[in-house]
């Protein structure tokens, strides 16, 4: 079921086009990756969703209706450029930001107490923000973003500034929130976390959508019929048989031979294995599925040309 969608959104700044005919649809309870190189227009789109700026044309549908002013209470936004009032105490500040999101003082206190206990950061309550490390500040910011239990969460580079342990904690929390029914829009340059978390993605380059869809489908689509093979060759025979295949790479690793081959028309993994089995001891045989990093680079470079 769709929670949220963008239809033909255009946005022009004084001298350049920031978004051109952007459309996307986000399912309820899914994690949606908004990807693209620097300056592609991601932040502009996120700001439009948050009603910080307005689109020149196009519309945004939220819960089946046109996005309205009050919907900001149902959205939690963690911007890439984020910070807190340095001189303000942590607790005071968290309550202030929560109240701006429409929570009452008591509700804010109750919920903050829960999260501070969960993250084991109660001792920070009366500290000034400037006394905390960057990672600590990020944690506070994360809590403030999700505190009002929004239906839609928008995270722009949420893991920057976190160590691996805290990154893991945060990823777990994002997944927990999704399991409880929240929908997440996730913008990052870290492709491995995209693979780990996202269900669907949109890749924007130079204001235009260049790739969109379910992440597994996309990865399968970019498969190049390539396989990776690890084996030993005890008899040290000259493997002429390999001439029948297109070998992309050949190397040695930990005493194993490692080759990458691309199958030609009519060849199947079985034909490869049949040819090789009499001569070598096979350790592993895998289909190469391109990772998001490769796809990202490939697609963006293609459209840049």
């Amino acid at each position: 079921m769709e929670l949220f969608s963008v239809h033909n959104v255009n946005k022009t700044f004084i001298n350049y086009q920031a978004l051109t005919n952007i459309s996307l649809s986000v399912n309820k309870g899914s994690i949606f990756g908004l990807l693209g190189p620097n300056g592609a227009g991601k932040t502009t789109l996120i700001r439009i969703i948050n009603q910080i700026t307005a689109p020149d044309s196009g519309e945004i549908i939220f819960n089946g209706e046109k996005l309205k002013a009050n919907d900001i209470y149902k959205i939690g936004y963690l911007p890439e450029e984020r910070g807190l009032y340095k001189k303000m105490k942590v607790g005071e500040q968290a309550i202030y930001l929560a109240r701006l999101k429409g929570l009452s003082k008591n509700d804010a206190l109750k919920k903050l107490k829960y999260w501070f206990e969960k993250f084991e950061i109660q001792p920070w309550w009366d500290k000034k923000v400037e006394e905390l490390s960057k990672g600590m500040q990020q944690k506070i910011q994360f809590i403030v973003t999700i505190l009002h239990e929004p239906q839609l969460l928008i995270f722009d580079e949420p893991f920057s500034g976190f160590d691996p342990i805290n990154t893991k904690l945060l990823k777990q929390e994002i997944l927990n929130l999704r399991d409880k029914g929240a929908t997440v829009i996730f913008s990052t340059h870290n492709m491995s976390s995209v693979e780990e978390l996202c269900d669907d993605i949109t890749l924007i380059n130079k204001s235009k959508t260049i790739l969109q869809g379910n992440i597994n489908e996309i990865r399968n689509k970019y498969k190049a019929n390539t396989y990776e093979l690890e084996y030993t060759n005890p008899d040290n025979q000259n493997l002429n048989i390999l001439e029948n295949f297109e070998v992309l790479e050949k190397s040695q690793k930990n005493g194993y031979e490692l080759i990458k081959i691309k199958l030609k028309n009519g060849q199947t993994p079985n034909t490869v294995l049949n040819k090789l089995l009499p001569h070598v001891d096979i350790k592993s045989f895998n289909e190469v599925i391109p990772n998001m990093n490769e796809i990202f680079i490939k697609v963006v470079e293609e459209t840049n040309d």
């Binding site: 900001i72 936004y77 450029e81 807190l84 009032y85 340095k86």
Partner: peptide, 15 residues
């Protein structure tokens, strides 16, 4: 201060 602290975007996503 709000600009250099980068809190501005957090706040104007609420008001």
């Amino acid at each position: 201060e709000e600009k250099t602290n980068r809190i501005i975007e957090v706040v104007i996503s609420s008001v």
